[in-house]
Structure formats: structure tokens, C-alpha cells
């Protein structure tokens, strides 16, 4: 039974990638010649906090068979709004960012659900528009955040390795896991990702679910952007494509498939931790920066192989033969 639980790709991929990366992290001192400090773990968790909400945002849309590219746009606009509206009250800034992200997501979700239009071109367009908006809001420059109390607060060390930012991110993952694991929403999300027509026939309110999905995704991404700009004490209007790519990598390492119908928040958590730890390993061992890129490429190559239908058919046949014999 335990074996069967593990051979499913949505369990196998996150477990294996997290174990491999944690082992590599633990053996980093062999290469760097100095023992791991709690500070290294703290840094890895900061990296996790930077990426986590974005990965969760894009990951839940991937589970439902969609692909929300606009999350980086909401991330940038969220950061910009938080810095503008939260100068005196950081909570107000976060609230403004989350509300804007949710509104952007709701509009997109409505469009995608009502017109039954593929989400990728729609969210790509929104991504471009949101980057333009963030640019216009700041005149193309970074916008600094004057409230240094908030900056110090979000990144203060707690229990040696945590910060309020990483704890909050972890908490949101746990909430997502509880909500999607304990209610029908988790099942329905996977159902509409796996076979949308069948779930419609089975009585799932697909359109409503998609609107909610994109609303939550936009809100999460904007919250991530707000927290990041508090941490950096400035908001960057153009984060580039890199955060999006890394979030997608985290989701893929978390056992989510781009075809949809597979994955869970805890897998996304493992995937995001893997990406963050990997970056920290390269930092701790003082390897050149391009090593990170090559490692991501190698991990993704494994996923390409695991996900390729040609190879999957092969392994299915092998398993069927073993079950027969």
C-alpha cells in the first residue's frame, strides 16, 4: 500500500525532489568546508517565502488544468500598491494589494470561465498589461518603501530560522492544504483539471470554481509581492520572467502536471522548498551562479522524461505485466 502511494507521480516527484535536495543541502559542508549554520536555513526559508505564494498561486491553477501566467503581473502590481498605500499602515498596503490581486483574478476568471477560452493567452495578455501598469505607477523606476519598521519586522529572526514572512507563507500553505484536503474543493479542482466535461456532467459548478480559483491565485500572488517589497524596502516594477519560471518549476517539482488533474498544496510546498534549498546550496557552497540554472535544467529534464506519455505508457505496460504475473 505504501509503495503504491509513492509510485503515483504526484507523490513520487515531490518526495524524491525534496529528499534529494535536503540530502544535498545537508552534505553541502563537505564541499564548502564549513558546517551549516541556522542562518543558512533562515536564508533558504527566506527564499521559500519569496517564491512560495507565487508557486502556490500558479500551482493551484495548474491542478485545475489552467496556467495563470499573470501571477507575476499581480506580484509586481501588488508590491507597487503595498509600497504606495502602506507607507503609514503596512496592513493597509497588504490589504490594497490583496484586494487588487483578487479583483484582477476575478475578472480573468470570469472571462476564462464564461467564454471557455484557454487561460494561457488571456493571462499572458494580463501579465503584459499588469507589468505596464506597475511601470506606469512608478515611472519605470523602483519605488522605495519608507517604513523601515515594517521592513525590519517582516524579516526578523524567529526561533533561529524563521521570519514572520516565511511563517506566514508556511501558514498559508497549511491553510490551503487543509481547505483543499478537507473539503470537496480539492477533489473538484483535480476533477476539472482531469476531465472538465465529465465534471460538468457530474454536477461540479465548473465556471464558479474557475472564477474563485483565479481570484485566489491573483490574491496570493499580490500578497507575495507585497511582502517581498516590504522585505526589500522597495518595489520593482519589472521582476522579469524569472519569478514566473521558478514558480512553475516549484509547482512541477511539487508533482503538479501541466496537463492538470494532479497535485496538492503539500506537494507544492515540497516543490517550493526544493527550489529554495537548491538556490541556498549553490550560495552556501559558493558555486558560480550558473550552476543553479544547470541544476534546474537537470531537475526539469527528469520531469520531462517522467511526464512524457511515451515513457509513461512503457512503465504502465511494465506494471500491468507484473500485476498479471
Amino acid at each position: 500500500m505504501r509503495r503504491r502511494w509513492l509510485v503515483q507521480p504526484d507523490h513520487l516527484i515531490p518526495v524524491v525532489s525534496l529528499v534529494v535536495v535536503v540530502v544535498a543541502f545537508a552534505s553541502a559542508p563537505a564541499l564548502s568546508g564549513r558546517p551549516l549554520q541556522p542562518f543558512d536555513v533562515y536564508n533558504a526559508l527566506q527564499g521559500f517565502a519569496q517564491l512560495g505564494l507565487l508557486a502556490l498561486a500558479i500551482g493551484i491553477t495548474m491542478i485545475a488544468g489552467e496556467f495563470d501566467l499573470s501571477v507575476v503581473g499581480s506580484y509586481a502590481v501588488g508590491g507597487m500598491l503595498a509600497v504606495s498605500a502602506g507607507a503609514t499602515s503596512p496592513a493597509l498596503g497588504v490589504l490594497a494589494a490583496v484586494a487588487a490581486g483578487a479583483a484582477i483574478g476575478a475578472v480573468q476568471g470570469g472571462l476564462i470561465a464564461r467564454l471557455r477560452i484557454p487561460s494561457m493567452p488571456v493571462t499572458l495578455a494580463t501579465y503584459i498589461a499588469l507589468l505596464g501598469l506597475a511601470y506606469a505607477m512608478s515611472g519605470g523606476l523602483s519605488k522605495s518603501y519608507p517604513n523601515s519598521d515594517a521592513t525590519l519586522w517582516v524579516d526578523q529572526t524567529l526561533a533561529g530560522v524563521f521570519s514572520p514572512r516565511s511563517l506566514l507563507t508556511l501558514a498559508i500553505f497549511v491553510i490551503a492544504a487543509v481547505v483543499l484536503g478537507g473539503t470537496k474543493w480539492g477533489r473538484e479542482l483535480r476533477a476539472i483539471g482531469g476531465d472538465r466535461r465529465a465534471s460538468r456532467v457530474a454536477g461540479v459548478t465548473v465556471d464558479g470554481l474557475i472564477v474563485w480559483l483565479f481570484t485566489v491565485s491573483g490574491a496570493l500572488a499580490a500578497l507575495g509581492g507585497a511582502l517581498l517589497s516590504y522585505s526589500y524596502a522597495s518595489a520593482n516594477p519589472d521582476p522579469g520572467l524569472q519569478p514566473l519560471i521558478l514558480a512553475a518549476v516549484a509547482a512541477l517539482l511539487g508533482g503538479v502536471s501541466l496537463a492538470g488533474g494532479r497535485g496538492a498544496p503539500l506537494g507544492l510546498l515540497a516543490g517550493t522548498l526544493s527550489v529554495a534549498l537548491l538556490a541556498q546550496i549553490v550560495a552556501v557552497t559558493a558555486l558560480p551562479d550558473f550552476t543553479t540554472q544547470l541544476l534546474y535544467a537537470a531537475l526539469l529534464a527528469v520531469i520531462v522524461i517522467v511526464e512524457s506519455p511515451g515513457l509513461r505508457a512503457l512503465s504502465d505496460r511494465f506494471r500491468a505485466r507484473r500485476a498479471d504475473g
Partner: peptide
């Protein structure tokens, strides 16, 4: 091989 283009090209981009 029917690989997913998005995953593959992200990997290729990193490589």
C-alpha cells in the same frame, strides 16, 4: 516523445 513544450522549453532555457 510528446514532451510538454512548456516544461521542456523552461528546462532548455535554464540549460
Amino acid at each position: 516523445w510528446h514532451a510538454n513544450p512548456i516544461v521542456l522549453t523552461i528546462a532548455a532555457g535554464f540549460a
